[in-house]
Design a protein around this nucleic acid. Sequence first.
DNA 1: GGCTTATCCTGGGCGC
DNA 2: TGCGCCCAGGATAAGC
Length: 282
Amino acid sequence: MPELPEVETVCRGLRANILGDAIKSVEVLRKESIGYPSVGEFERTVPGHTFEDVSRRGKYILIHMSGQSGLAVHLRMSGRLLLVEKKKPAKFLRVRMQLKSGRELQFEDMRVFGRIWYIPPGKTFAEIIPTLAELGPEPLEGLTGVALQEVFARRKQAIKSALLDQRLLAGVGNIYADESLFHSGIHPLSAAGSLKLKELERLAEEVKKVLTRAIELGGTTFSDFTSSQGVNGNYQHDAWVYGRTGSDCRICTATIVRVKIGGRSSHYCPGCQPKRRVRKGI
DNA sequence: GGCTTATCCTGGGCGC
DNA sequence: TGCGCCCAGGATAAGC
């Protein structure tokens, strides 16, 4: 499940390998994978552009190209952006871009939730993808407890749900939300707006630590994610609660529990994350 | 406006 | 072995 560390890992891989290369031709194998413009226009317009830079905003990969144009990619659930030397057939290949270097940039996506947008000259990424403008602060750009206090103010929803809301905080997904809450000792059902500044300061630090650690390890590979070179991440071996339902906590030996919060699986340790100001119901 | 729930999609796991 | 059901989850729309 690509979250900020996985997307950052892909961006770094692309930045190190595709700058200066150019797109020779494009083939869209699944029309749903193209967010903008139409498939026909995408295939006609994108070829000929040179890759100039790669950046990231939240979970969006932003590829800056020649002529003030760009490509935005969201991997969603199962998307993979792969740079391959040989044109090997991929089972879930949705979009393929042949590059002048002879390599191919492939977009694989088993569940077809991922999207690629072309950003035409004169337009900004946010003009084509309005949700980009609504994203919350970047966790790795100086996130503080005060900043969290501002975005969570008066919110009654569970802190777990609030952390997943990209308008409040960009880039955090299910895995790292669970891990950050565990390291902060905060119960996932705690009302977001009820947390004290001291708790939020610790949460801000743990979010940064967890994300930084995950980036160092190349992301998490539970099922679908690999880097742009097809290399699996290693964070899953570092997880303390995510995917450890029924296992003993490594700190207090209580049993890790899994509950549904906002329709998402949430993992926590009842010993290390005691209930306080917990919302009614799940 | 805030919050919850349903929907999209498909492979894998599980029970029968 | 094969079938059917459920689950995973990011983003968004719909509904309360």
